[in-house]
Amino acid sequence: MSRALFMAKLEEGLAGLPQTQIDEIVSDYRFHFAEAEAAGQSEDDIVARLGDPARLAEELRGENEPCLAANETPKSAGPAVMASPGGQANRWWLLAFLAVAGGGMAVYYLAGHDGRGPTMIANVVPPAPASQAPIAPAHGVRVVISGGQVLDLGNIAQERIEILLDGGGRATAKGRVAELTLHIDGSGSADLGNLEADNVRVDVSGTGSADVSGTQMVDVTIMGSGTVRLRKKPRTLMQSVTGPGQVILPSGQP
């Protein structure tokens, strides 16, 4: 099949979708043809490897139905809890440095393990590039805890720290930061009451809970039944709670 025929069949299969969407989709495959040609592939090969355009069009129609996002957030809570059966003793941790995501932000992924040997993690976490040692940069650190691990970050003195808890894990830290950003997407908890921050942003979706201590500005978003407890009363408090979750102020009442 030629490129022209592939494109014609694709467009035929997409007929009926809004023209802007068709244009976007067609441009995806135009880019692909150009990039694959630049890589030395023949037109026939490119078409063969792309697959049947009629079927692709069918799939693209499916993707354009509004059924996304809604099922995305709560899904992470269940299986992640399953991954940590009981929090036993014989457990070790691997801190894998994965990527530097621009702006001097280091990204750490924490993968916990139950003593079955490192192969499982090695498969899941790409190896660290040799040129990038896991040292904390001056600007900030991003810590990702996916699973049921407990991570004590110790005494922190950072400009920015971002903590992502995507399972039933737990993070604790003390010290001082200028900016604290915390995302809890499952049943995780963050005990950061002794980590004094100027500005704190917390979002909790799921059943997670957080203790934070922000002095200037605290911005809390809760979707679900999560709890955010404030150790200090900040100058400015912004909160948005959707669901039965709550923000608890230092005095004790919600």
């Binding site: 992470s76 991954a83 995501a101 899941v124 992502l164 995507d166 995302h183």
Partner: peptide, 13 residues
């Protein structure tokens, strides 16, 4: 990045 962390956890479980 958040979705990656979540899906990674799911996959591991």
């Amino acid at each position: 990045h958040r979705a990656l962390a979540a899906k990674r956890a799911e996959w591991k479980a």
